[in-house]
Simulated scan of single mutants.
Amino acid sequence: MCRFTLLLEQMYKLDSPYTWLTFQVLCRYRNVWNMELKLRPAFLGGVMQASGNKPPAMVPNKALYMTKDLEHLASFVNIPLHSPADPFDVMFAKGSLAAMRFITAVAEKDKGSDHMVEKVSRELWNRIWSRDQDICEPESFSEAGLKAGLSSSDIEELLKLAKSQAVKDKLKQVTQEAIDHKAFGFPLIVCHVDGKSLVFFGSDRFELMAHCIGEKWLGPQPEKMDSHL
């Protein structure tokens, strides 16, 4: 059985919507491919600094291209993606370290299962990339958590846990694991097969990945493809 580790960041730099696309597709393949999907929040800033990389948006032509590219990909993958009114303020001025720590807290409390990590992550992505809403304040985490199915008491506990040294250290640990895999950005997928680690970067490597692990690529919406087989 192959085991996928999706190093999932929520810094919401310009490549974060690509991570959302990858996240959504991999979640759809949970029961299609013979795999275990592990969602692992990591800190993009640490990876960029360690690798010497720079955000693609720093190159004007790349930023222009990616705006249209994301529109096409969102339609292709069938995700309601809409850029925030001020993407630079969201991605660079505000950042999302607090959101990263909150998701890490969810992951720590939800050990052994990524069910709630998936749901809360999706709600936070929807907030910022579908509805242009905040993901920095505790009230935002509470709203996302409630929509994901958490109770008020669970959220209160998670908000406290997110500020703990244990969660901060966990986020650093997973980020270091990404760096150890020679990461230079996200989305990053690490597939462990036969004692070896295969590393894939980007939201357009699914077909190649399927080939490498001996699975079939059925497109970004495998349930639709299955209905025609």
Results as ranks from 00 to 15, higher is better:
residue 94 K to S: 05
residue 142 S to A: 14
residue 95 G to R: 03
residue 23 F to Y: 11
residue 96 S to M: 07
residue 106 V to C: 05
residue 60 P to L: 12
residue 146 L to H: 03
residue 113 S to L: 11
residue 41 P to H: 04
residue 144 A to M: 06
residue 46 G to F: 02
residue 109 K to T: 08
residue 70 L to E: 09
residue 51 S to V: 09
residue 58 M to L: 15
residue 141 F to L: 10
residue 91 M to F: 10
residue 124 L to W: 00
residue 80 P to S: 05
residue 48 M to G: 05
residue 73 L to K: 12
residue 99 A to C: 15
residue 47 V to A: 10
residue 106 V to I: 14
residue 143 E to C: 06
residue 40 R to G: 00
residue 69 D to K: 06
residue 126 N to Y: 10
residue 127 R to M: 07
residue 32 V to G: 01
residue 80 P to M: 03
residue 135 I to T: 09
residue 114 D to C: 07
residue 38 K to L: 15
residue 88 F to C: 10
residue 22 T to G: 03
residue 130 S to N: 04
residue 146 L to I: 11
residue 109 K to H: 13
residue 106 V to Q: 01
residue 95 G to P: 03
residue 135 I to L: 06
residue 116 M to A: 06
residue 105 A to V: 10
residue 51 S to P: 05
residue 58 M to C: 13
residue 86 D to R: 12
residue 42 A to K: 03
residue 45 G to R: 08
residue 85 A to F: 10
residue 32 V to I: 14
residue 119 K to T: 02
residue 111 K to H: 09
residue 52 G to C: 11
residue 56 P to S: 09
residue 104 T to R: 08
residue 122 R to V: 01
residue 32 V to K: 05
residue 129 W to F: 12
residue 97 L to H: 05
residue 83 S to C: 11
residue 82 H to I: 04
residue 59 V to W: 08
residue 107 A to G: 03
residue 147 K to P: 01
residue 54 K to D: 14
residue 114 D to N: 12
residue 53 N to T: 13
residue 20 W to N: 00
residue 97 L to T: 09
residue 144 A to D: 03
residue 98 A to E: 11
residue 51 S to R: 07
residue 115 H to D: 15
residue 139 E to A: 14
residue 39 L to N: 01
residue 50 A to G: 10
residue 132 D to G: 03
residue 97 L to S: 04
residue 101 R to N: 13
residue 33 W to S: 02
residue 102 F to N: 01
residue 84 P to T: 07
residue 57 A to P: 01
residue 136 C to K: 02
residue 65 Y to Q: 12
residue 103 I to V: 15
residue 65 Y to R: 09
residue 31 N to C: 07
residue 75 S to A: 14
residue 102 F to G: 00
residue 85 A to W: 06
residue 89 D to G: 11
